[in-house]
Amino acid sequence: MKSVEVVAAAIVKDDHILIAKRGSGEFEGLWEFPGGKIEMGESQEIALKREIDEELNLMISDLNYIDTTFYDYPSFSLVMHLYSCTADTENIIKHVHSELLWIHYQQLDSVEWVPADIGLLKSVVDYLSKD
Rank of each mutant, 00 (worst) to 15 (best):
E90W: 03
V96K: 13
S61Q: 09
I52K: 04
I103P: 06
I93N: 15
D67T: 15
T89W: 02
F27W: 14
H104Y: 03
G36H: 00
S75Q: 09
I11V: 11
T86I: 14
E51K: 11
Y65E: 04
I103C: 06
T68Q: 12
T68S: 13
S98K: 08
T86E: 15
V96Q: 08
K37P: 02
V79H: 05
K49D: 01
I52Y: 07
L30W: 00
A87V: 02
I11Q: 02
L82W: 09
G25Q: 08
E32C: 15
S84Y: 04
G25R: 02
M40K: 13
I38D: 02
I103S: 05
S61F: 10
E55A: 07
Y73C: 11
I11D: 00
L58S: 06
Q44W: 04
M80F: 08
V96A: 10
L78Q: 13
I60V: 13
L48W: 07
G41D: 04
A9M: 09
D62I: 03
G23P: 05
Y73A: 13
Y83F: 14
D67K: 15
H95P: 00
F27C: 04
T86G: 10
D62V: 07
E39L: 15
G35H: 07
D14T: 06
G29D: 05
E42L: 03
I17F: 00
I46L: 15
E55N: 02
V96C: 10
N91S: 13
N64E: 14
I93G: 02
T69V: 14
D72I: 10
Y105H: 13
K49M: 06
R22Y: 11
S75H: 11
I103G: 03
V79E: 11
G25C: 06
H97M: 06
A47E: 07
A87H: 01
K94N: 12
I52V: 10
F27E: 14
Y105N: 04
I11F: 00
V96M: 01
L100K: 08
D67R: 11
L78R: 08
K13N: 12
D53L: 15
D14P: 05
H97D: 15
V96H: 12
Y105G: 03
D53F: 11
E99S: 07
D15V: 08
S98L: 01
T86Y: 11
A10L: 02
Y65G: 02
L58Q: 05
A9E: 11
H104R: 06
G35Y: 10
N91Q: 13
M59S: 12
Y83A: 10
A10W: 01
S77V: 05
Y83N: 07
E28T: 11
G29W: 07
P74W: 04
D67Q: 09
P34K: 01
D72V: 12
L78H: 09
L58K: 03
V96S: 09
Y65L: 12
N64V: 14
W102R: 05
E26Y: 13
E32T: 14
Y73W: 14
S75W: 04
L48N: 07
G35W: 10
N91Y: 09
I93D: 10
G29Y: 03
W31D: 02
A8R: 14
G41V: 00
H81G: 05
T68N: 04
G36K: 02
P74Q: 01
S75F: 06
V79P: 08
S61E: 12
Y71D: 01
F76V: 09
E26A: 11
K21Q: 15
N57S: 14
Q44T: 03
D53V: 06
S61Y: 10
I52P: 04
I60N: 09
M40T: 12
E39R: 15
A47V: 08
